[in-house]
């Protein structure tokens, strides 16, 4: 018989983890429902998921491709690699914030693990990323861009990226519950950061006065660990990998600790 004793609760950071494992079928079901509701109404179905990044890339390549013809051959591959990671991080975190503040009413009515929606948002984002890699493959195929053994590094990149994204989503969702302008501020900041991140352009075009600050942009190593194996067909430098791992680990620990410790208060705020 299950027993619950509030005096003998394990530490929150552990408790929430075990609760999520117990409710894993719920997390999976919510992810399925998100995917279903997004693609059910579109007649193109799953193809829309493939088409969307393709169209985005084609438009941007037509607009900017010729500008970087010499410094970035196969511009579309470079661009899409960066875009996929950028979208993965920003869309997942935004989705998590919105589902926590709007869908969070359920947390006040019935017990489910508090992180359910956020983990489901991250899972949904991960699936979108994997599907978009298929459209990336289509572009790579058409441009005859080489595919090498460096692709075998990608599962590690994706794992690091997922740790970062989940931690960031937990951090932002906690903030979003306590301050209701979090989503707006975040949108403005991410838009600014997008142009300060070499996604549409090579880092070399920035004047050195600005370029030297790029080492403070945390998104760059996260994009590099994904883009370098695909675009440059080599493994990323060790210092990039280590930077990304440290960043992702700290983000996940901070996000998880903050969220699980504030989760009981979240119920009072939603």
């Amino acid at each position: 018989m299950p027993k619950y004793d509030s005096a003998k609760r394990p530490p929150l950071i552990i408790d929430e983890f075990f609760q999520l494992i117990r409710y894993r079928d719920l997390v999976i079901l919510i992810i399925e429902n998100i995917l279903k509701s997004r693609y059910k109404r579109s007649t193109l179905g799953i193809f829309w998921m493939l088409l969307n990044p393709l169209l985005q890339t084609i438009v941007l390549t037509i607009a900017f491709g010729t500008m970087f013809k010499s410094s970035l051959p196969n511009y579309a591959v470079y661009l899409l690699c960066g875009l996929l990671i950028w979208n993965y991080i920003t869309q997942t975190t935004q989705y998590a914030m919105v589902s926590m503040t709007q869908g969070g009413g359920l947390l006040r009515r019935i017990y489910i693990p508090r992180a359910t929606y956020i983990v489901a948002s991250a899972g949904n984002g991960l699936i979108n990323l994997l599907v978009s890699i298929a459209s990336l493959a289509i572009i790579i195929f058409f441009l005859n861009h080489p595919i090498t053994l460096s692709w075998f590094f990608l599962p590690i990149s994706i794992l690091i990226l997922t740790m970062f994204t989940l931690g960031f989503a937990l951090l932002l969702s906690t903030a979003a519950v306590f301050f209701n302008d979090t989503v707006d501020i975040y949108q403005v900041l991410t838009q600014a950061l997008f142009f300060l991140t070499p996604i549409m352009y090579p880092p070399s075009i920035l004047p050195t006065e600005i370029g030297k600050y790029l080492i403070w942009n945390p998104i760059i190593p996260l994009i590099d660990i994904f883009r370098i194996p695909i675009y440059n067909n080599t493994l990323p430098d060790m210092d990039i990998i280590i930077k990304a791992i440290i960043l992702a680990t700290i983000m996940l620990i901070v996000g998880w600790t903050l969220f699980t410790n504030k989760a009981d208060q979240v119920i009072y705020r939603l």
Binding site: M1, P2, K3, D5, S6, L106, R108, R109, I110, I267
Partner: peptide
């Protein structure tokens, strides 16, 4: 659903909550 700010709660067994039907 709500955790007490103070005090202790002990419950033994599976609960079927009929608080707000169709909440989920």
């Amino acid at each position: 659903v709500i955790r007490p700010n103070q005090g202790r709660l002990y419950v033994e067994g599976r609960i079927a909550p009929l608080l707000e039907l169709g909440a989920g």
